[in-house]
Nucleic acid binder design. Structure first.
Length: 270
DNA sequence: AGGCGTTCCTGGGGGC
DNA sequence: TGCCCCCAGGAACGCC
């Protein structure tokens, strides 16, 4: 389940090979993978069809062209990588052919991943909150955001229109580090705790990017595994002792997601 | 506004 | 030994 650090890792891995490449064609092998366009649309909308930049916004990989963007969302099992052979992997749902002969493969076992074609980032920006790692995102802004809502903290942090990029793993990690129980209500969290949460979200994401993400279930880049799995403090540790207090970590469901918690360290604020 | 259920998919785990 | 059922999970959407 790729979250911000995993998406950033994919971009860091393929960006140099994408820059300056000109698209020859985009081939869907499974019809629904192109969400709002057809292969022919790229001739009209992308004009020169040359990749001028590759950036991340929220959990999207953005291929920037002179007159538009292709946004790619990996959802749960999507993988994006260059492939030299002429055959396609079993779960390849689409690929992009470049004039140079390079092929960018999109492999996606569960078929939730999608490609989108837009004129610019407006459409994505409108439905997404701030980037947690941006320098413009501050403690004060975050605390204000929490106070203006009265909502379950885990549901809120997972909500991409509130804050972009977090997913199930890094939400649990950030809440544990901040000693906040996932059943807490956003505007009941004390100032000191929300300040800690702000810093722990950023530190956790930054450290995970350095470690090239977390290898859980399906995530890897060209078979290379992320190293953050070794750093996880609560996620996936049900039945094991909390690293801070020794209490057994429990797993339950919060906001419809599998959630890992230390019932002693993490306080419920309501 | 917020919470919850449903949908999309498939591999894999649980139950017997 | 095998097989069937059901579920996880990101995001969008509809409903209360």
């Amino acid at each position: 389940m790729p979250e911000l650090p995993e998406v950033q890792t994919v971009i860091n891995h393929i960006k140099d090979d994408l820059m300056g490449e000109k698209i020859k064609s985009i081939i869907p092998l499974w019809t629904k993978v192109l969400h709002n366009f057809t292969p022919n649309d790229i001739y009209q909308k992308l004009e020169k069809k040359t990749v001028v930049d590759v950036i991340r916004r929220a959990k999207f990989i953005i291929l920037q062209f002179h007159t538009g963007i292709i946004a790619i969302h990996l959802r749960m099992t999507g993988k994006l990588y260059f492939h030299l052979k002429n055959d396609y992997p079993k779960h390849c749902t689409a690929y992009i052919e470049f004039e140079s002969g390079k092929k960018l493969i999109f492999e996606d076992v569960r078929k939730f991943g999608r490609f989108y074609l837009y004129n610019n980032l407006d459409h994505i920006n409108h439905r997404h909150g701030p980037e947690p790692l941006d320098s413009s995102f501050t403690v004060k802004i975050f605390q204000g955001m929490l106070l203006r809502r009265r909502r379950n903290i885990k549901a809120l942090l997972l909500d991409q229109s509130f804050l972009a990029g977090l997913g199930n793993i890094y939400v649990d990690e950030s809440l544990w580090k901040s000693k906040i129980h996932s059943n807490s209500i956003s505007n009941a969290i004390p100032k000191k705790r929300s300040e800690a949460l702000f810093h722990n979200i950023r530190n956790t994401l930054e450290e995970a990017i350095v470690k090239k993400g977390t290898t859980i279930i399906d995530f890897s880049v060209n078979g290379e595994s992320g190293k953050y799995a070794k750093m996880l403090q609560v996620f996936g540790r049900d039945g094991l002792e909390c690293f801070k207090c020794g209490t057994l970590i429990i797993k339950n469901k919060v906001a419809g997601r599998g959630t890992y918690t230390c019932q002693k360290c993490q306080k419920v604020y309501t």
